[in-house]
């Protein structure tokens, strides 16, 4: 019995050795949290951003529905998750897959480029998203965290 347990430990360690050269996040810049200018908030702490993007907080303080918009760029997405959600991309994806297969929460919208994302957030009541801090924002959008 002890031998079997040792085999398990060795297998676990081998797995670590096999993949010890993981590639680090390539996005060096910072991300900011943006929202439609109508949302009733001027600033959000990371805890509130975390609660919103993990589907725990579903409405703004005026009870308008929160529309979550994700960026399809992996580097920006991972930098956002690391700074605000404190989850890896897989963990974040699993939270929403769990919601998907239990019928809970509304699945976030995903946009493929900065331009598409900005356009959607500026035109959608209650929308919140994130983008590189270097991007210049149009008037229909406000910054909630930087």
């Amino acid at each position: 019995m002890k031998m079997k347990f040792k085999i398990m430990i060795v297998a676990f360690m081998l797995c670590e050795v096999m993949v010890s050269g993981r590639i680090s996040n390539a996005f060096a810049g910072d991300v900011m949290i943006i929202a439609n200018k109508e949302v009733p908030a001027e600033h959000l702490g990371w805890e509130e951003v975390n609660g919103i993007f993990l589907g725990k907080i579903m409405r703004w303080s005026n009870d308008d529905r929160i529309i979550i918009v994700l960026h399809s760029n992996d580097d920006i997405h991972e930098a956002f998750l690391k700074k605000y959600v404190k989850r890896t991309a897989t963990q974040f994806s699993n939270v929403w897959r769990q919601n998907m297969f239990t019928g809970k929460g509304r699945i976030p919208v995903e946009k493929n480029s900065d331009a598409e994302l900005i356009d959607y957030v500026s035109k959608t009541k209650g929308a919140i998203s994130y983008i590189s801090s270097d991007v210049t924002l149009p008037p229909g959008i406000k910054v909630l965290a930087k």
Partner: peptide
């Protein structure tokens, strides 16, 4: 549980 890489996760 620990995710060693994007594709591999192990747990005990």
């Amino acid at each position: 549980g620990y995710r060693f890489a994007e594709q591999i996760e192990a747990a005990f």
